[in-house]
Design a protein around this nucleic acid. Sequence first.
DNA 1: CAAAATAGAC
Length: 638
Amino acid sequence: MSYCTLAVIGNFTYPSTSTSNPNPKVSISNSTQRRKEFVSLLKNCKDANQILPIHAKIIRTGHDQDPFILFELLRLSSTLSSVNYASTIFQLVHNPNVFLYTALMDGFVSAGSYSDGISLYFQMINRFIMPDKYVITSVLKACGSHFALREGKEVHCQASKLGLSSNRSITMKLMEFYGKCGEFDDARKVFDKMTERDVVASTIVINCFLDHGLVEQAIEVFDLVRVKDTVCWTAMIDGLVRNGEMNMALEMFREMQKENMRPNEVTIVCVLSACSQLGALELGRWVHSYIGKHHRIELNHFVGGALISMYSRCGDIDEAERIFAMMKERKVITYNLMISGLAMHGKSIQAIEIFRGMIKQGLLPTSFTFVAILNACSHGGLVNLGLEMFHSMSRDYGIPPQIEHYGCIVDLLGRVGHLKEAYNFIQNMEIAPDHVMLGSLLSACKIHGNFELGEQVARILMNHGVVDSGTYVLLANVYASSGKWKEAAQIRAKMKEGGIQKEPGCSSIEVNNEIHEFLLGDLRHPQKEKIYNKLEELNQVLKEAGHIPATDAVLHDIEDWEKEQALAIHSERLAICYGLISTKPCTTIRVVKNLRVCDDCHSMIKLIAKVTGRKIVVRDRKRFHHFENGNCSCGDYW
DNA sequence: CAAAATAGAC
């Protein structure tokens, strides 16, 4: 990217705010009156569909070059409609002033089209239009978000020449810009020059550190802030969540309570996100009741969506449905969240119903909506409906299928054992298959015992090049299941060769508001003796009940073949055993696992649910398993 | 009157 800049400030023209009448046919007083009317009409407009008629009227009455009207029109169309429309209007303006540039640039920035915003700024400079503090603030935001270091520095120079660099909002944006670009020394320089280093400036610094994964440095700055406000706390909590430090985020939230700082909607959304990633249902419920008790926290679509997501991902899908039913303001994302929640839990029919409701509301489904719906069909074994939906998305909604949608269909067909159809489907696709899709077919081959096709798919996969650790493990498992130990060993060797690390399996369970984490064969828990005794006891009971440990699953979680015999103690078993000894009888046990459950654990958990009379809910990487009375809601396919 | 936000795929 290259921008040509003329730095001769003297050549700049002052922005034209002239009220001169561009259209001689309209009298001045009449025109001023009309302008007022249009401006207030545009300011009060809340519906995107009204922009077009208003715009038409503006043109008809000859006000299409009026800078005041244009300013409002640009703002409105870039927030309500699309920045593309705003851009089209802008191109028809004969002499756009700095305000109009700012309006369009704000549109680009909020749409995430940062490079367009930056180009627009330099186009303005090249037309000798003098930048003001507003347009500089806006372009610095774009430069920061786009990591456009060179361009941002140039803007910094221009701001200095114009005597604007000490302006408060520009200083803030400069700091943010340097921080986002990782230029902490320069950010520091700006920070040091500031006479007033308040909580706002600190919040920016904290946020920049957290953008770069520098958690410790962020905490250091945070601790030095004397008077922290809600935004500052929230920025810290959110940053910890973004850096995967869920427990620290929740700890921070507890501390915030202790200091009597009130959370707002944003804080709640961040905390709920941490809960849902951890599977911390108890804490999530507490946050929910907190919202109920504190009426200054509104159940807007952000909070509602976060609650739906939290309850779905923590295993309480009924509560997620209740929230959804209660919400007054529902957007497409709200529907998407609800549909994928239901899909995760295998509640396909309900997911379809939500989808139909969405269409009835006049909302347009997105590409994501269809992934969620196809997932629901796949998890529920609704082959015909899934195929119908797949055709409908491009035919009725103009959404061309992407690789993910094709992949859903392969999964859908594979699940019910239509392996040949799935294979043919892949061969007839307009796009090349990827390893995820092939992996899903391979997994179907394994489950349905078609090792011939499985090997064929495996060979394609191996030639494919880019394969992730999960796929390697699956490949090795397929070979192992059909007794091809040599091939299985070769895959493992290849993994080692390529330096591909298997993600360690990890399961967690929430007991008394605390998250307990377990790794494979973990011995770190203070109650490890009791846990292992329980496991031993269960193994005995299950053996008597006729459970035979499957041998093909061991490759799932174990680094070395030798470790297998000694440590076939998958993390989910430990988490479940801990749940059994630390909760009252009949309480539902909820476990969250980072990988997918192996065959052996799956059949074992079914039996554990049966002999202990407990409901056991396991969230794995892909979906939920509700174990009850010897059965699982996934119908043994996952 | 500046600073913080939703989930995201086979």
